[in-house]
């Protein structure tokens, strides 16, 4: 449809009107008249139409990002549960391991005591200094030691198997954490897409941004010690720093 900018009828338009009327196309004829009467409006309408389409497209594209709302309402709560699972499993593993170790300590101590009890008489025996009564008592002590050691080594073996099995958390928590890392990557990408859509640069900020610290500068374990010069690398660094302060 041609748009007349002048507001006056042209010969061409008049001819078209006559043509449409002759063919019985009343609507088309009316449209030309309307166009002549309101040239600016029709341009405005076209422009509004274009904007409406753009808005519609943007909204549709935005809805494509309904993934974002899934992330917020389902995936992230799910990730919290997964991370809580990691805390629970690692705590269980630590406790299982310590249960076994704490059960081993007294067993080993008893064995050490029994060895210590036998030792002086044994040394005497080796030096041919042991009399018969002492020898009898040594035999009884050695008998206890052997019976006890035989029984307790089995016990220790089974406790050490418990320690071994408690390490299965690594596999499970590793898988769970990997999933959470994937989610974090996806959220990062969605946020970058959104920033780009709003025309904000998603380029990484050049200056070093230090993690937020809480009260008393509390930050928790430092995971990138090599890249930081405000933290100590190990216990030796701590000791050096303290001794430089006169400790």
């Amino acid at each position: 449809m041609t748009i007349a900018m002048t507001g006056r009828i042209s010969l061409e338009q008049a001819k078209s009107v006559v043509e449409f009327l002759e063919l019985g196309q009343q609507d088309e004829a009316n449209a030309i008249i309307a166009e002549i009467q309101n040239p600016i409006n029709s341009e405005l309408f076209a422009e509004i139409g274009k904007l409406t389409r753009q808005l519609h497209d943007s909204l549709t594209n935005f809805q494509l990002d309904s993934r974002l709302s899934d992330l917020a309402t389902s995936d992230i709560p799910d990730a919290k549960e997964r991370l809580n699972f990691v805390i629970t499993r690692t705590e269980e593993a630590a406790n299982k391991t310590m249960d076994a170790v704490e059960a081993i300590f007294p067993v080993v101590n008893t064995m050490a005591e029994q060895v210590a009890a036998v030792n002086p008489s044994w040394t005497k025996l080796m030096n041919n200094e042991l009399d018969l009564t002492e020898f009898k008592s040594l035999c009884l002590n050695i008998d206890t030691l052997l019976k006890n050691t035989g029984k307790e080594t089995q016990h220790i073996h089974s406790l050490m198997t418990d320690v071994l099995m408690a390490q299965d958390f690594q596999d499970l928590t590793g898988q769970v954490i990997r999933k959470v890392i994937d989610l974090v990557i996806e959220v990062e990408e969605s946020l970058i897409t959104m920033l780009t859509a709003f025309g904000i640069s998603a380029e990484p900020v050049q200056e070093k941004v230090l993690p937020k610290v809480g009260k008393n500068l509390v930050e928790g374990p430092i995971i990138n010690k090599e890249n930081r010069d405000d933290v100590v690398a190990d216990q030796d660094d701590v000791d050096d720093l303290l001794s430089s302060l006169g400790f």
Binding site: N216, L217, V218, E219, G220, P221, I222, K225, D230, V231, V232, V238, L241, L242, L245, F247
Partner: peptide
């Protein structure tokens, strides 16, 4: 502690 900032060690001292 896991807190390893030099500033914190000084603060503790």
């Amino acid at each position: 502690t896991a807190e390893a900032k030099k500033e914190q060690i000084v603060m503790a001292a």
